[in-house]
Amino acid sequence: MKAYFTYFKLKFMSGLQYRSAAWAGIATQFFFGFVYVMVYIAFYESGEKQLPMNLHQVITYLWLNQAFFALVNQFHKDPELFQMVKDGTISYELVRPKNLYFMWYFKILGQRLSNVVMRFIPIIFVTSLLPYPYGMEGASNVYHFFLFLCSLMIGTLVVVALSVLYPIITLATMNEKGIVNVMLSIADILSGIVVPIPFFPLFLQKISKYLPFQYISDLPFRIYVGNVSFQFGIRGIFIQLFWFLILVFIGFSLMKRNIKRIVVQGG
């Protein structure tokens, strides 16, 4: 356990060195956030009745998306891991007497956490100072806030379990583009980062209920804005835990299978 934690710490600390990248990231997040917010404000002006979320809820949701983007986005591809698979450096990893799956898991977890730690505070701070209707609002109540924290933490574990799958698949396909990119773009849509789930067409809402993606960031953010009830949130957390275990199991056994078949070509 201690060895894995060291991997986590290594990635976490080295991630903190990239401060200029973090500032660039924050600028990007602000820009996208503003564009999204203005688009929704313009849409809400059309005066439709019976919308699944009200305007403040949507805007707070959008800013949360931007603030925690580095933590929950789908397109996190660690170039180091993919490189390792493609150029054969993975053979060094295989001689280490530790489980490769958990090594990779903690590496990605460390990276994601260090990326988000440098980004979310300025975004939340500035956006909560913005005037109505652009700014972000507080949680709907204290209980929802704590539920949000729990759910975000488990959501992080779920998304990392997903991100580890991609280099593992690459072990078999040797190409990190084709199928992996298709999976990434499906995950990206269904995670609610592009559009909050309540705005989906009905049939897609039904489909995504049975997939892990909406339990990463959509659930915690909707808990925060109070779009779902407390009971619903609790139930959601159990589903999150379920998906976490399933995904770790899939990744772990897939890794085992792919490593058996691995061929390292000299060098």
Partner: peptide
């Protein structure tokens, strides 16, 4: 996925 945003928002709103 690029078009998805526009398509799904227009199922809820009639115009922007």
């Amino acid at each position: 996925s690029y078009y998805f945003v526009i398509l799904s928002l227009f199922t809820k709103f009639s115009h922007i």
